[in-house]
Write a protein that binds this DNA or RNA. Structure first.
Lengths: 249, 249
DNA sequence: CGCCAACTTGATGGCTGTCAAGTCAGGTGG
DNA sequence: CCACCTGACTTGACAGCCATCAAGTTGGCG
């Protein structure tokens, strides 16, 4: 029934119609757990797709919210701006993840979503999603889980910002990326960063110089190999040990 | 129809049956926007109430999740523990706010909820809430808003932890508390802290000594009057200016 | 080929953590 | 009722991590 080996790195060219029912990401995304018939009803809803070029906004803080977005391919960041000019990256999102959940609360987006590479998204009109999830229990429950997962993720970031030192934060960041790439069928040990040192620093509550220094240090100690945005993880356990550094102290 | 002046500081003794339909907090809590008939259906669901003594757990990380909790009276903190022993307070919750949303994601609670004073909560079985919100559109939508608001709140905390200095964080914390007390009909300028300096520090990513020093400094500068846990805000604008301190630099 | 953004690396300083000592308030028991 | 005790808090001295400022390097793109 449900495909148990959900992801391939190469996308079959025979897939023309871009719909949830034949999307490679369906096991990571909103359609998780739906029956074939239910999937087709979701397809109707997710008819709008959009390409977003690298550097362009998917939405901006303050804009009226009316849809959430599933990332079909590509890479995004979200950031928040304070009145006084400070800003912070609140997350990096990759294929299969949802964007825009923050907008439900006030019916206006509260952050900016910006593509870090040419990307493709599926727009899901929110009122129609609510309608369908009133009819499809599985969809409703899964959507609630996705929102809850976002809350848990945010708690993890708060933990990171509140209790970890610079190198621990960066180690946690790399391990998190690695794990998410793995879940998408990519190498867990080798990947390209889509974001700048400054964006990483903003996310981790550090300055770009500190991020750069930490990368260099990890390389000196043989945990990773860095060449600009290309990262190879040489010693996963080394990074994990770094992350839990406090345990020994 | 709906009571437009929702909160009184003294609770009428004539209210015996503790149900959403005659709860003083209904405009802050889950019942917001429901009709009388819908309210009664929610009442059936929220039949379980519980008293939690100061210091006791409402739930613990790892326990199976099956209900969310509305705070009827009292004050809670939630905290997360890392494997290596580090922990952090992820939030303080007061009357009318919901606890346990983090548990939906994995069907297990991911944090501890601990009463900071003798409290009373309403347990809301989650599967029944999902059932009812499939039937009552308003309830569904409001619940989504509440979850989304939690995400936005977390982004605010990330901002605070990632970009603000100690005094800015504490100023933001006090202003946030003040605003929430105001919404509940209490004084915006005078309140008792339910939590210790250490808990404040944990929440703000600071050590308790730093919190203490910041309080002293605020007092010296005439922004507040502190006497242990009793806080009087003397100069709201002063605190706001402190919070946006970076603007001038 | 040249420009520019992104990145690396070094030197210095400041904020906040750490360690330590002392104060205060509330609760308990004699 | 008071002395004592304990946890919470305050304050001081010092140190370390990371921010800041600065200069130089790299790589990509027109």
């Amino acid at each position: 029934m449900a495909q148990t080996h959900p992801l391939n790195q190469e996308i079959s060219l025979s897939v023309i119609k871009t719909a949830c029912s034949n999307c490679n990401l369906r096991e990571l995304c909103l359609p998780f757990g739906l029956s074939l018939e239910e999937l087709e009803r979701l397809d109707d809803l997710v008819s709008t797709r959009r390409r977003i070029k690298r550097g362009d906004h998917l939405y901006r803080a303050g804009e009226v919210f009316d849809a959430i977005y599933a990332i079909r391919s590509g890479f995004f960041k979200t950031d928040v701006l304070l009145e006084d000019g400070r800003d912070q990256v609140t997350g990096f999102q990759m294929a299969g993840e949802l964007l825009g959940l923050d907008g439900i609360s006030t019916e206006h987006h509260t952050c900016n979503a910006i593509a870090l590479e040419d990307s493709e998204i599926c727009a899901i009109p929110f009122s129609r999603l609510e309608g369908l999830s009133r009819e499809i229990h599985t969809l409703q429950h899964h959507f609630h889980k996705v929102m809850s997962r976002e809350i848990v993720r945010d708690h993890g970031v708060m933990m990171l910002l509140g209790t970890m030192r610079a190198e621990e934060r960066l180690a946690a960041f790399l391990l998190n990326l690695s794990q998410r790439f793995t879940a998408r069928g990519f190498s867990h040990a080798e990947f390209y960063l889509r974001m700048t040192r400054e964006e990483i620093g903003s996310y981790l509550g550090l300055k770009l110089e500190t991020v750069s220094r930490a990368f260099s240090r990890f390389q000196e100690e043989g945990h990773i190999a860095v060449q600009q945005k290309h990262i190879r993880i040489l010693n996963v356990n080394g990074l994990k040990a770094l992350m839990n550094h406090r345990a020994s102290c």
